[in-house]
Amino acid sequence: MKDLVGIKELSKDVIELILNTALSFKDVLKRDIKKVPALRGKTVVNLFFEPSTRTRTSFELAEKRLSTDVLNFSVPTSSVVKGESLFDTVKTIEAYGVDYIVIRHSSSGVPHFIAGNVNASVINAGDGTNEHPTQALLDAFSIIEKKGSLDGLRIAIVGDILHSRVAKSNIYLLSMFGTNIRLIGPSTLIPDMRQYGVEVFYDMDEGLRDVDAIMMLRIQMERQGKGFFPSTQEYFKNWGLNMGRLKIAKRDAIVMHPGPMNRGVEIASDVADCPQSVILDQVTNGIAVRMAVMYLLSGIKDNG
């Protein structure tokens, strides 16, 4: 496998291999010396066309712990309008002799476009409203860490599913592992994804009943006033996660959020900090999962 462009393109076996490999890397992260020489001599470029501190930092740490040389290339999309084309940017970067390109872009399909035009391994760090595969992998890793497996679990994904690449990648992944997926949110923000066997709930109280895990999604403030929902107040009232609602889920249900959180909009502050919250575990696991992905993608140039 040369690239990781999306969960859609992965088989269940490969996902299991990544998650198992990530376990070993999580052990590495517990050592005093957290760096291994596995990818010594390899060069990685983090090509971010969309601002992101968290994902970029997580990737950068994963890359450094694998002993790669890291190059950060941040291009705000607005300046690209006047500047060179994506194709030229990517070809230039390839000419630097990089082995991995970690790409985030506001347009869906850009990782596929790049992967088809370079020999380097391409890792999708989030493209438009398409996918964010490493987030789904780290979410699955975090759930398995707490629950033992994904099989038979009831998992609620709450919020703006329509525009969420995190939700999409999670739906693709979880549907492969026999998970009962519930989508909860306003009808304007839930697309038709019946083919993945999801259940849809507009009523959050009903949707949270007996779930094992609750994945909250970040609500994009820009959606307000575009007719998706009238106000953040109304949103929080109907689809915000507070302590009262958390009690509807199973007693040991875990609460997840890909960050950054809007406290008081999609998640109440006390929920974010409660013992059931695994939000900070997700951050740690993100590094292990990204190390596993980079390790498993062969960096060999002529490997197709």
């Binding site: 291999l17 490999t21 376990l23 070993s24 890397f25 052990d27 590495v28 291994v36 020489p37 596995a38 990818l39 001599g41 390899k42 596993a292 390790y295 498993l296 062969s298 960096g299 060999i300 490997n303």
Partner: peptide
């Protein structure tokens, strides 16, 4: 696995087992 000197040469990276 993570300390091997042939990682860049092999087609597939070896499985990482427990340490």
């Amino acid at each position: 696995a993570l300390y091997r000197d042939d990682l860049g040469i092999r087609k597939e990276h070896p499985a990482v087992r427990k340490t």
